[in-house]
Structures are given as C-alpha cells and as structure tokens.
C-alpha cells in the first residue's frame, strides 16, 4: 500500500506510448484520488491507458464495460435469486439457503472495493449508460461505499481504486458528474507519435515501409464523407496485413496504390467512397 505522501508514479508501460502531458494528468489524478475521465476519438488509446497504468503500477485491472441497459446495481452486486430458488427447491448444493449472503455476487465496482490490494478500475464507455446511472455511480465512487440491501450490509472500499473512466461521446456528461472527475481529451496522435506507436508494435518495421504507410494513412483520414475514419487499430492491422503478404512490394504503396483497403475501412459505404477517392488521387 502506498500512503498519500509517497504516491506510486505512473511512467508508461511496455506496449503503450504515453505522452508527457497525459502522464502528468494521470499522476495528479492518482494523488488527488479523483477519477480521471478520458475522452477522444476511438483509437486514441483510452482503454489501453487503463491497462498500461495497471501494468506499470503492478495493480490488478478490473474493467467494467458499460452497456446501455445496465443498472448501477449490476455494477455493484447481484443477488442471485434464481440459484437460491433452485437450491431451496432441490437442496443439493453446499450453499446454505438461509444465508442470503452466499447468493450475493460482487459486480465489477464491488470487486474493486473488496479487493485486498489497490486496483485500477476501468469504467469503459460510460456514455452508453443513462444519466442517472452516471450520477449514482459517481456517488458510490465518491463515498467509496455502498449498501447491500438484502443482507443490510455496507461494503466499504478497503483500498481506494485508481479510477479511469472513458467516454466516446462528443456530448458532455452531466455537470455533477464532471464536477467530480478530472478531465482529459486525448487528441488523435500526430504522425510522429504514430511512428512511435508503430515501433512498439513492430520492432522490425523498415523505415521505408513505416513512412509510406503513415503517409498513406493520414491521407486516407482526410478523405471526405467517411463516417468511420481509420484509427490506430486499423493502421496496425493494415501494417500486419502488408507484412503477411509475401507478394507485397513497398513500391506499390509508394506509388499511391492502397492494397487491403478493407482492413482500413469497415463500412461498405466508406470503403466504396475510399476506393473512389483513392483512384482519383492516383490519376
């Protein structure tokens, strides 16, 4: 355990390229014991950051993937009534049916609270849930405790987890929610940064190929009318595809040809638009 006076510092992990600015923000948030809200385009590494923090601070990561139908209770704990009903009917399990506590399962937030060591709690894509969920969840995270109604017990966090919240939304979250978080917006990596990211994933990537790929990639992102622009993940998959192709020749990319467009554009409308514009650019 780290007392507040000597906080564990975050410096980035093996597979994650961290920019200085973000590292500072993460450290400030850990020290202030505030959740950190991350926004940014898909593919800017919001989710990866939580993994990287967990790795570098050597804490277990607990990820809560928010779904639109999710209720706060699901994230805290679940009372498994059906199993209990079944046990009471057939009575062939080792559980004590009269003890409700045996049928309480911890949700992700609950797990982070009862864990014996400090954890990194990732709440992914908070924008999918409705506003009530968001506000109520922040209450729980503020007080670091919640009640289990069925057995009248209060669960208090043994260790305050490092909380990372991500949101894809362009729209702002509610004011009370924002008031309780630190905020950072991750911009899309510039070519220089992207080069470093590629290096991490492909240590043996040749300079020429990297350059050509990046050039093409950023050109593709500027195509008009594209609904889902290719992001980091697509770029990495694309480079992987190029490397896997035995017939692939660097010259083709340098000449403006783009093989495996389908790896970069996932929507059929986008793909046909891209093919059109790529063709025009070559001529």
């Amino acid at each position: 355990m780290n007392p507040v006076g000597e906080p564990s510092r975050f410096r980035g992990a093996a597979k994650y390229i961290l920019d200085d600015e973000l590292a500072k923000i993460v450290n400030v948030s850990i020290a202030l014991e505030m959740p950190l809200l991350l926004k940014g385009e898909p593919g800017t590494g919001k989710t990866m950051l939580a993994h990287a923090i967990a790795e570098s601070l050597a804490m277990p990561l607990i990820a809560l993937n928010v779904k639109s139908s999710m209720k706060l209770l699901d994230a805290l704990y679940q009372y498994d009534t059906l199993t209990r009903l079944n046990d009471s009917r057939f009575g062939d399990s080792k559980r004590d049916v009269s003890n409700i506590g045996e049928y309480i399962r911890m949700g992700k937030i609950g797990q982070a609270f009862v864990s014996d060591c400090r954890t990194v709690l990732l709440i992914d894509e908070i924008d999918k849930a409705d506003t009530d969920f968001q506000d109520d969840m922040l209450d729980v995270l503020d007080q670091m405790q919640f009640d289990i109604m069925e057995i009248d017990k209060t669960v208090t966090a043994k260790n305050r987890p490092v909380i990372i919240i991500t949101s894809n939304a362009k729209k702002d979250l509610s004011d009370p929610f924002l008031g309780r978080c630190n905020f950072h917006h991750i911009a899309f990596p510039d070519p220089e940064m992207m080069r470093m990211i590629l290096n991490v994933h492909f240590p043996n990537l040749s300079e020429g190929l990297a350059k050509a790929c990046l050039f093409t990639f950023y050109r593709l992102r500027e195509f008009r009318g594209i609904e889902k622009k290719p992001a980091t993940r697509e770029l990495i998959n694309w480079v992987r595809a190029l490397q896997a192709d035995p017939d692939f020749d660097l010259k083709t990319v340098e000449n403006g040809e783009i093989p495996y467009l389908g790896v970069l554009f996932k929507k059929s409308v986008d793909l046909s638009l891209a093919i059109q514009q790529a063709g025009r650019a070559r001529r």
Partner: peptide, 26 residues
C-alpha cells in the same frame, strides 16, 4: 490542493494539471 501537495512544479505542470482539474470539456 494539488498545488499544496506539491504535485505541480512548473508552469508546464500547471498548464496540464489545471486544465485536467478545471476544464471538463474539450
């Protein structure tokens, strides 16, 4: 509080930290 905790050592730190803490939307 962040200043008091000694988390901010330079104008650069202040720029990032203050933005993360004060400004809640890009």
């Amino acid at each position: 509080k962040a200043l008091a905790l000694g988390l901010i050592g330079s104008v650069d730190d202040f720029y990032t930290a203050a933005r993360a803490i004060l400004v809640k939307s890009e």
